[in-house]
Amino acid sequence: MVTVVDAANLLKDYSSQDFLADRGESLGEDDTRSLVSLLVEQIEFADVVIINKADLVSPEHLATVRKLVAALNADARILEARFGRVPLEAVLDTGLFDDAKAETRPLWAKELYGYAHHRPENEEYGVESFVYRARAPFDPTKFHAFSSSGWDGVIRAKGHFWLATRPDWVGELAQAGAQTTTAGLGRWWAAIPRNRWPDGDAFERSVGDKWDSVWGDRRQELVFIGIGMDEAALRYQLDACLVETTAFTPDIWQGRDDPFPRWGVQEAA
């Protein structure tokens, strides 16, 4: 899979709040995707990324574009081009595409799920990354303020979270550029009767690796990828959102302020 990006406009588009419909590029009335979500999707799952119009930007600008691409896709072959000209052998019959590996290609997935053998992006491109993990729920008001604040230097953030007011539900956070979204993914396995769990040793091992004797698989697990981001400050802000488990009783938190939108019919049930 080959993706072509415009060196002159990528940084501007990545920080845009536009939807595809705003650019006249939607697939129809039901296509509510944002411009940045499409950019991210196309870069994260590409085998080859061609940075076109490389001659129209400064070396510093081009270096930042390369860092952005590398931050989104750790394994892509990155090529620079003028007028879209690249050697045909670089894009045809490359043998690079592997459907099974496509899901592990984004850098956030490598960091979050611990896929081995990915190259040290910080050494080659100056891209930084870290995973925030905690075994305590977030205060929804504090975490909502954090997720809405914008984070200097962060290019991509992804992961799942646990709210004190929704102890049974997995929340998902996804950030790219200027856009941050949250949604409900479903229930934690700890909230599902064991007789409804999938069969198989692989599932038992995957859940067992993340299991806490009190809270089960409930946890915070968020990856942040950026250039020049302040990891210590981000960790401090996230720690400030936590509710200490020694003082946490789910029943007490029911009905407290929770500014997050309802997560479908589940929250209403």
Score class of each variant (00 low, 15 high):
P106Y: 08
A157R: 01
G126A: 09
P137F: 13
F161E: 04
Q175T: 10
V154Y: 08
Y113N: 00
W169K: 11
A157D: 02
A178I: 08
F130I: 03
F161R: 00
V154T: 10
F130H: 06
D139M: 11
D152P: 02
L173W: 15
P120T: 07
V154M: 12
R119T: 01
E123F: 14
G184R: 15
Y113I: 02
W162I: 00
K158N: 08
T181M: 12
D139H: 13
A100W: 10
P106A: 05
H160S: 07
D152S: 14
A145L: 09
D139Q: 07
G159S: 09
W151D: 02
P140L: 15
R156F: 05
R133D: 13
E111C: 03
I155F: 06
P120A: 13
T180S: 10
V170H: 11
A176R: 00
K142Q: 14
S148A: 15
E172I: 14
F146E: 08
F161Y: 06
T104C: 04
G153L: 00
P167V: 09
A109C: 06
K158Q: 06
D99M: 08
A116H: 02
G184P: 12
H160R: 03
V154E: 04
G114C: 05
G177T: 07
R105M: 14
F130E: 08
Y115E: 00
A134V: 09
K101N: 06
A136N: 10
E124L: 12
S129W: 06
A183L: 12
Y132V: 04
F97Q: 07
A134I: 10
T104K: 04
A176C: 05
G177K: 03
R156T: 05
L96C: 09
K142N: 12
A178T: 06
Q179C: 10
G95K: 08
V127R: 00
G114L: 02
F143I: 05
H118K: 05
D98Y: 09
E111L: 03
V131D: 01
G171W: 09
A136M: 11
E172W: 13
S147C: 06
T104I: 05
E128S: 09
V154H: 04
W151F: 11
H117E: 13
G126R: 08
A145C: 09
P120Y: 08
A109W: 01
P137N: 07
R135I: 11
R156C: 04
T182N: 13
G126S: 07
F161H: 03
T165C: 11
T104A: 05
L163Q: 02
A136Q: 13
T104M: 06
T104P: 01
R119Y: 01
T182S: 14
E111V: 04
R105W: 12
L96G: 05
A100V: 13
P137D: 13
A136C: 11
K110I: 02
R156P: 03
A183C: 12
G114F: 04
E172M: 14
F97E: 14
E124W: 10
T180F: 14
P167R: 08
V170Y: 13
I155H: 03
L163M: 05
T180P: 05
A109I: 00
A134R: 11
F130S: 03
A174H: 15
Y125M: 08
W162S: 01
F97R: 10
T180L: 14
A176H: 01
A102P: 00
L96N: 07
E172V: 15
W169T: 15
F130W: 10
G184N: 14
G95E: 11
K158L: 09
L112F: 01
D98R: 12
